[in-house]
Computed example of a mutant assay.
Amino acid sequence: MRILVVDDDINILELVTIHLSHEGYEVIKAANGLEALERIDEQFPDLAVVDVMMPKMDGYELTRRLREIGDIPVLLLTAKGELEDKEKGFLAGSDDYVVKPFEPKELLFRINAILRRYDKAVDVIIQVGPLRINRQSYEVSIGKRVLLLPLKEFELLSVLASKPNQVFERNFLIERVWGFDYQGDEQTLNVHIKRLRDKLEGIKIATVRGVGYKLEVLES
């Protein structure tokens, strides 16, 4: 699991990094919002821990940008506990908040709770028949053949493969892969499904008319 930590206070940044690394998370560090947006172009996180008060771009604006980019859960770090600040954070799209100073155990507890809510607290490796997905290295293989998938195709396949033979509704897939506030055309999902079908051998993505899609393993 990969977590983006954004804070202009180097002491907080290092403290959070140490505790997350100790729990087995891979940490992406950034000192401000602009740097954070550059970093996620290189490594896409499963969750972001974002400080509210930062120069150049505050945590609220960064949260909005992260939600526009994809379904990235956000936990805000704030020095204030007033209701107005909490409301502003939730309106920006954050999932939870921790008030400074905080106990590292509380931060870890809230992170785990968010990941469970998003159903991201799953095994790093997903194995479905000959299909093997490594959620940490973003590597997909079918037998000995390794596939290089664009990020959205990888995320879509990971969701479908997480529960083989279960039907996922179209709206659910769009929200999980493109974000709950996605305003684009549903045709985008159709295009990504078609691309995956063209690349997969021995794996079937079945259409359930009027509902959505499910992943099946073809018998050899």
Rank of each mutant, 00 (worst) to 15 (best):
E153Y: 11
P150G: 05
L131T: 02
L115K: 07
S137R: 09
R132V: 15
K163N: 14
R117M: 09
E155Q: 13
L156K: 01
Q127R: 15
I126K: 12
E169Q: 13
V146S: 11
L115V: 12
P104V: 03
I125G: 03
I142Q: 13
V122H: 09
V124I: 12
G129D: 00
E103L: 03
R135H: 08
L157T: 13
L147A: 10
K105D: 11
I142L: 11
Y118V: 10
N134D: 15
I125M: 11
R132H: 08
R135C: 06
F154T: 11
V128P: 05
L157N: 12
R110D: 01
F102D: 05
I142C: 10
R132S: 14
R110V: 03
I125L: 11
V98L: 11
F168V: 12
P130A: 00
S162T: 15
F154G: 06
R116A: 03
P150F: 09
V140E: 04
K100T: 07
Y138T: 03
P130L: 00
S137P: 00
L160W: 07
R135S: 10
Y97S: 12
P101L: 07
P150C: 05
F102C: 04
S94F: 07
Y118F: 13
L148F: 14
K100D: 13
P150L: 07
K100E: 12
E169A: 09
E153T: 12
S94E: 11
K152S: 09
F172P: 01
Q166H: 14
A113L: 11
R117V: 04
Y97I: 11
V146T: 15
V124E: 14
Y138A: 03
G143L: 12
I142E: 09
L149W: 13
E155L: 15
A113H: 05
E155G: 05
R132E: 14
E103N: 13
